[in-house]
Design a protein around this nucleic acid. Structure first.
Lengths: 144, 144
DNA sequence: AAGAAATTGAAAATCAATATCAATTAGGAA
DNA sequence: TTCCTAATTGATATTGATTTTCAATTTCTT
């Protein structure tokens, strides 16, 4: 976490940007736990510590983190969600009931995707794959 | 195509809804070709025939078609796109340059997706998979 | 032909995200 | 440390896609 903040500060310095109280707070709250947060959710957490933080500042800070490769923007459903960037590519399982998000990797699927692209003479750049269903807990609920 | 319209009319009658000039026009334009149209694009086509058709009516008619299973809403990027519903599930390849959309089916990928869900104790309901890249034509352009 | 109920189009509302702008703040230079 | 300029902030306005509202119009059953 400290390393993330110092990496960001380095990035800021290089770009002639400034480190601010708000920025630091938002970033440290973002990196506290590995989750998939919406702007709204992060704002809520941040405001527990500093009432005055504005909407736009959270948007701007997350864009900053995304630009310097520390965060990744995912567009599931309604609002975008941001996750910590990882070195490995992964996709997501999403519970339709409680919203739980599970990350997974599957090389065999990736390979087949590449095959599909070749067959259709597409040069694959990236993909989006989301599996929607019910997690164990929620599936249980529906059977009571 | 005639069958689609009569299917829709049957649906309308069952629900106590009415068949109108606007509705008929929008539906028949929608089913003219198998494409992935935005509301905007469909509106444009429809207005070539009837100037006065409103924005909201196209939205409403597409929702109607979606509800009765004749159309399918896809949420790629900016605006939603609607396709004719088909009996087989499929996913999409999308060109990042020209926007070309190619449909594909791949049972092996579907099977692996089901496996991933099982492993994570999710009950799979549906999924979204989009492969983004450059189609043959556009890839060519980038190498000139 | 009449009347109730649905539909239409225009404009307003909504929702997420971005841009604007005056006031504030950060941080290098003096 | 103090100054100064450029960056940042928060509030608000704006955008773009979609939905809702509402009065006027149209459909369809009787």
């Amino acid at each position: 976490m400290e390393d993330k903040i110092s990496l960001l500060n380095k990035h800021l310095k290089e770009k002639g940007l400034k480190s601010t109280r708000q920025r630091d707070l938002i970033v440290s709250e973002f990196f506290k736990r590995h989750q998939h947060l919406t702007v709204e959710e992060l704002l809520e957490r941040v405001r527990k510590i500093d009432q005055g933080i504005g909407y736009a500042t959270v948007y701007r800070t997350l864009r900053l983190l995304t630009e310097c490769g520390l965060a990744f923007k995912r567009e599931f459903g309604g609002s975008a969600r941001f996750e910590h960037s990882t070195d490995h590519h992964h996709d997501h399982l999403i519970c339709l009931d409680c919203g739980k998000i599970v990350e997974f990797e599957n090389d065999r699927i990736e390979k087949l995707q590449a095959e599909v692209c070749q067959k259709n003479r597409f040069k694959l750049i990236n993909h989006k794959m989301e599996l929607y269903g019910y997690c164990e807990k929620c599936h249980g609920k529906h059977h009571e």
